[in-house]
Amino acid sequence: MTNLLWLQGGACSGNTMSFLNAEEPSACDLVTDFGINVLWHPSLGLELGENLKKLLNALTSGQMPLDIFVFEGTVVNAPNGTGEWNRFAGRPMKDWVTDLAKVAGYTVAIGDCATYGGIPATAPNPSESQGLQFLKRQQGGYLGTSYRSKAGLPVINIPGCPAHPDWITQIVVAVATGRGAELSLDEFQRPKTFFTSFTQTGCTRNMHFAYKVSATEYGQRKGCLFYDLGCRGPMTHSPCNRILWNRQSSKTRAGMPCMGCTEPEFPFFELAPGTVFKTQTLMGVPKDLPSGVDKAGYVKLTAAAKAASPAWAEEDIFVV
């Protein structure tokens, strides 16, 4: 059996909801097929009060092995670095995080908040929130740059707001079945298997992106959302159009822009009015261009592609 403990800091429970909706494998499969023993989880844990404290103390003392420590939400340090705003089982949650991370075989951050600080860490960050090993783009976070779990790995980050259910369970299974050492992580400690391609990879609107045909309203049956509606698909690393949501669709397929939730700067522009779902431009040119593309190249390519666009690209293409 592999012991897994899931705790929640400054969080909305979105990743818990996501986890409970996992299908391949499901949360039940983790227990029945992969021998994972969920010691405690905010929605599934049976123990309360003193019994929960006993369990946590057994883990921190080494009496019971903690193979996988999953953390959802930010580490709350307010007020004034004490962490008293987020108490759990008799002490600040951040103190549990310190002690549990020391004994964990693997430490896994689920969702943006645990990874980078996410929405709670947006300025002015009243809860003094941090991610486990990052604060936005800056490495370090609560556990510090040099933190390594017992298996010798830094925190495994699975960002997303929320993370896709299958990203969570597939990584947990990989770790539980002894394949943790094979995980290759990127500069933000995200498993490369999920976070090397872009949200745009597999988007059904790629033809419209190529021919520079813009969607001007949500849910339109044609057009790409990059040009006007702020889609961050071309510069966001996620498999949202490869591993579909609910096995059915994705935000961009349904005509809603990607908000770039797997990247450290999310929420972008600190949620200033007028910045959400609106492409930010300077003199008519998008401020954030597709990854690796420069302004001169973008302008040239766009003009040429637009001139070459076929008539069908301007008509509804996803006809029901």
Binding site: S214, T216, D228, T302, S309, E314
Partner: peptide
């Protein structure tokens, strides 16, 4: 940059 409808994102070429 020459700003003309032909290259604008809101322009439907056909």
């Amino acid at each position: 940059i020459t700003q003309l409808c032909e290259t604008c994102m809101y322009y439907k070429v056909h």
